[in-house]
Design a protein around this nucleic acid. Structure first.
Lengths: 345, 345
DNA sequence: CTGAAAGCGCTTACAG
DNA sequence: CTGAAAGCGCTTACAG
């Protein structure tokens, strides 16, 4: 006895449309794809029938003949343990997703441990024709993904940069601008000893921030040290402790993300520092974390959703072989909250 | 001039394998799919060649002939504004993703505004043969998705329940158990007036919690009111304000998620209530938010990642037409932090 | 303006 | 144990 698969309603094909409209399958295909060479009357009749019977393209068939999957991929390299809390990722995902689905492109996602695993994943997606293009996030300074997509000629767009982007189009996250806002905020409050707890050093964005941070401090006649951490709360705590135990502790600390900033705040308070009187704290990247702690944390804000949407639309351009219009960095702003004030009061 | 598509390396097909191995394409297909009826020698030679030339199946071709996409879908109904902060979603996603990719199944995701849009999306995925099955999360009491997948006979698994699950397999999130832990914690501390700030009333899980909450209070000889909110910080704030302004304010409040709990904590403190001396606060659902605020917030914890993985594996069973082994609720535990103590001290 | 043919890369019966 | 045929549902040249 042949196995009886679950049936469910029948899914109409272009053959059904052709039959009902009294034309060939080819004409149906032409009408559906807006191909010229069909009378307006025929075309609209076909489209009418397609709508009536609720036809939707079989994606596999279309992909096979058109050599296009109609999907884009986002492989996200994060150690499993850092996954729970990711406002940046969520917003980015929402923006990408919205832009893609508006153009009827699906999004395929995969979470991997590191960028090497991600490069392997990209290779696999390519080999399986699963995706027409990919978005690359969290660009590293020595990033295997760039060479991989270049080699495969897989359409790709980098969310991040500049630097280390190879020949790929990239969308800078305004690291320089954000850092500028923060240093300006603190120096104008009177701070002259500003330290920074940086994210993982192999992130391209972190290097950009480090460079601009030094330059801005010098220009403002201030001094500052940079302690490396890894974007986690534990890293933020350890780095903060180290800084506050120095002979000449800072009057302000800048953190490369919200989670380290909030962790640093907790440690500072435990060590008896009053925030902001003894120590000002500023986070590069806003989130609800910065809002709910006491004192609330001053932070830079950027429209991450829009950022993701712009990059996703650019990827579609690349896939369709069009030129990508170069895009300036995201605009940032600074939300001054209770964790920053004039030093020593 | 024909457009020259970007070339890149060539992707080998089973025809290439067949040629190099000196067999027919059918034999290759048999070998690749572990189909019997091939000598061991032939099979291993074919697999060897496939590996050598780096063959990967063309997913579109396989999907078209096997009527299987090799992908599952997760459409996530959330108003855009609540998207930024979602530890539960992130953990669930990580668990689902890990389980699926371990079995070589891709994950397709889509973010939509509400469950009606999600039902429409499911219908579309089905019509396009984009997915072989779907995961349903955040089950509502009047959920259009259940009827939709039943009608389409689209394999589906519900993350949540019991109740409102129709004929579909479901994986309960242990709402009863979590609530039990919380009420037990508070009553054993001596609380007798325990209120609750509930999540959106149309969530099936919220209704389960409400029912068990009442029952447990009665059994413990305690009293309590339930104020509805919507899982957002604004909702949590308003509800808390309302409760604390009552003639007989509670000595403890239970919140249906971390974000409302933390928002409630802030409001309570602003209103002059000392936490936990005047008011104990407990969150149903732990997250870093509960850890970073002062006082830190007592919360119930469950292994959301494992939860997602179990459900995803069950979906694969359903897709393959096997019986789904019924699964008990997740195990929960309670992390007692600083926000809860004996009342009135 | 319209249609018959070929093909995308696989899998699934079926015959030897 | 092995292979030739047919077909999945589309699209893409090409001929009328």
């Amino acid at each position: 006895m042949p196995r009886t698969p679950r049936e469910g309603p029948r899914r109409p094909t272009i053959a059904d449309i052709a039959e009902r409209a009294g034309v060939s399958k080819v004409s149906v295909s032409y009408a559906l794809n807006g191909n010229p060479g069909l009378s307006e009357a025929t075309r609209s009749r076909i489209l009418q029938v397609a709508k009536e019977i609720g036809w939707q393209p079989n994606r596999a068939a279309r992909a096979l003949s058109a050599a296009r999957s109609g999907a884009c991929g986002l492989a996200f390299a994060r150690p499993a343990r850092t996954l729970a809390y990711e406002p940046f990722f969520n917003k980015l995902l929402a923006g990408i997703e919205a832009a893609l689905s508006a153009q009827d492109v699906a999004l395929m996602i995969q979470i991997v441990e590191d960028t090497d695993a991600e490069a392997a994943m990209l290779r696999r997606w390519w080999a399986e024709r699963r995706v027409d293009g990919v978005l690359l996030v969290d660009l590293r300074t020595d990033d295997p993904r760039v060479a991989t997509v270049e080699e495969l000629k897989l359409p790709a767009v980098i969310i991040g940069g500049p630097g280390h982007t190879g020949s790929l189009p990239f969308f800078p996250g305004n690291d320089a601008g954000g850092m500028h806002l923060i240093v300006e905020h603190l120096t104008s409050l009177g701070h002259r000893r500003i330290d920074r707890v940086a994210g993982s050093a192999n992130f391209a964005a972190v290097q950009v921030r480090s460079r601009i941070f030094k330059r801005l401090l010098t220009r403002a006649g201030a001094v500052g040290r940079v302690v490396g951490a890894d974007f986690t709360s534990l890293g933020g705590e350890a780095a903060t402790r180290k800084l506050l135990e120095l002979a000449e502790p800072p009057t302000a600390v800048v953190y490369d993300n919200d989670i380290m900033a909030v962790a640093g705040l907790g440690v500072a308070q435990e060590m008896g520092a009053r925030v902001p009187e003894d120590l000002s704290i500023v986070s590069f990247e806003d989130s609800i974390l910065c809002e709910v702690v006491r004192p609330s944390v001053t932070a830079t804000v950027r429209d991450v959703e829009a950022f993701g949407a712009v990059a996703a639309r650019a990827l579609i351009e690349v896939i369709e072989g069009r030129e990508v219009t170069p895009h300036g960095p995201q605009t940032s702003s600074l939300v001054a909250r209770r964790s920053s004030s004039r030093p020593g009061r």
